[in-house]
């Protein structure tokens, strides 16, 4: 099972990924971690806003919507089927 490193905004609907690092600093980093976005967390897309942004992710049982520019700061490895 190979895996590719990328950022969260590149994740596709049918994929599952694992967070490797959060490359955002300051209070926003805290906030994301408050919501469960920690290294090692499995994440996948729950749904995309009808206007294309933000995207709602399923993280540890909650649904969290992030705008694209935030998702860009979250590094992930995509699990390949």
């Amino acid at each position: 099972m190979a895996s590719t490193a990328t950022t969260l905004d590149r994740l596709r609907r049918d994929q599952t990924a694992t967070v490797t690092s959060v490359n955002i600093h300051g209070p926003q980093r805290r906030r994301l971690m408050d919501l469960g976005m920690l290294p090692g967390t499995r994440i996948h897309i729950d749904r995309v806003s009808p206007l294309g942004d933000p995207t709602a992710y399923l993280v540890r049982g909650s649904v969290i919507a992030l705008r694209r520019e935030q998702a860009r700061g979250i590094h992930i490895t995509v699990e390949q089927e």
Partner: peptide, 8 residues
């Protein structure tokens, strides 16, 4: 616009 996270 600052980033934010909205929980559904």
């Amino acid at each position: 616009s600052s980033t934010y996270s909205l929980e559904l």
